[in-house]
Design a protein around this nucleic acid. Structure first.
Lengths: 197, 197
DNA sequence: TGACACAAACAGACTGGTCTGTATATTTCG
DNA sequence: CGAAATATACAGACCAGTCTGTTTGTGTCA
């Protein structure tokens, strides 16, 4: 069964998971390498065998975060769809669940861009591309509710509502912004010239 | 007429202005005390005579930033109003001017909340209250275009559009989000049951 | 006007700690 | 053996904050 030392590096996985947890909760700059290796139970040289620098670890963490977040969000949406919601309603239901999840501290990719401060940093570039992918998912969901044409037209505005809801949830420590965004989105969609499938 | 050593501390003003510039451009954690005093041309003890700690300076910088930003935003809006725009159009015109201003790196108060990570930090609490004040200003502007009732009803959603536009301008390095937010706002307002004064 | 005292800012050394990253030598296990 | 992880020490830079002592400008009072 080969599992002794690890299949595909257990230490690397623990480093990324630990760093993701700490970076998200406390910020990238506030969390030092020593803290990460201590909580991951890994030697410092092991970290530097897997990652060339802290920046490199940051980028790996962001990749991992995207996978993890996408899976979680899809799971939440699926639950709401199975409870009878439309795709679009389910999206905002998942958003609200996210805002209310313990330790919620906003979008890690927005936070990374803010903290890294440098738009040329690999972490910033990946975060920027993540947002494009996230908005693409949103567009597909809107398409299912309002049709291709309306989705093309309305997705950018709805994306702003979603991003605004995330930031506002952090600033006001409240999940109400998810409801506000949902209601505004439904108002925009219902007003669309073509809201049939 | 008495200006020799300064009226009301020149050093303090220079410290706050320098710190504001550096914190906004590079982030709070990335900028050290030594850097600030060097660029402000001030002795370290002078800083600690005026501020009890770096955190204390951060809070003072945020207060200063609010005053400065409000004045600048009002100036931009006034220019657009004088060019014939409605208050609401002028708001989004000012937003776009802000996004396109050199060195734009998003909202300092959002950035502070993200960087400080601690919701109980004085800087986070002030940033949160700043957002409430900013949205109150927005509500007054909407009132002038759409009436009190519609403003009460729509301001939260429009505030999300605005916050989303700020974040998106940073992430995508583009000011287009200001136009998207303006168009969506006008769509929402025109759909309002009562859009007379 | 000239002497003096005071407050503010100055310069810079220093403490104790943290940071990222490296080097070395040892252990564990397939 | 050889690969991977370990523990530990270290380098060199930076961090916030303290302390000492000096300079400088200014208002007061004789």
């Amino acid at each position: 069964m080969m599992k002794t030392r690890s299949q595909k590096s257990d230490a690397r996985r623990r480093l990324i998971e630990t760093a993701e947890r700490l970076f998200y909760a406390e910020g990238i700059h506030s969390v030092g390498i020593d803290r990460i290796i201590a909580e991951a139970g890994v030697a410092k040289m092991t970290l530097y065998n897997h990652f060339s620098s802290k920046d490199d670890l940051v980028v790996a963490v962001l990749h991992y975060r995207e996978e993890k977040f996408d899976a979680l969000f899809q799971k939440w949406m699926k639950q709401s769809v199975e409870a009878g919601m439309s795709q679009l309603e389910a999206f905002f239901s998942a958003l609200k669940k996210w805002f209310e999840s313990p330790g919620f501290r906003g979008c890690m990719f927005i936070n990374a861009c803010v903290e890294l401060a440098d738009a040329d940093h690999e972490g910033s570039k990946f975060s920027s591309s993540h947002k494009r992918r996230f908005h693409e998912l949103l567009k597909q969901i809107i398409t299912q509710t309002a049709g291709v044409k309306a989705a093309d037209q309305m997705t950018p505005a709805i994306a702003l509502l979603v991003e605004g809801a995330i930031v506002t949830a952090v600033m006001q420590q409240s999940s109400r912004s998810a409801d506000v965004a949902r209601d505004a989105t439904l108002a925009l969609v219902s007003k669309s010239p073509k809201n049939t499938t």
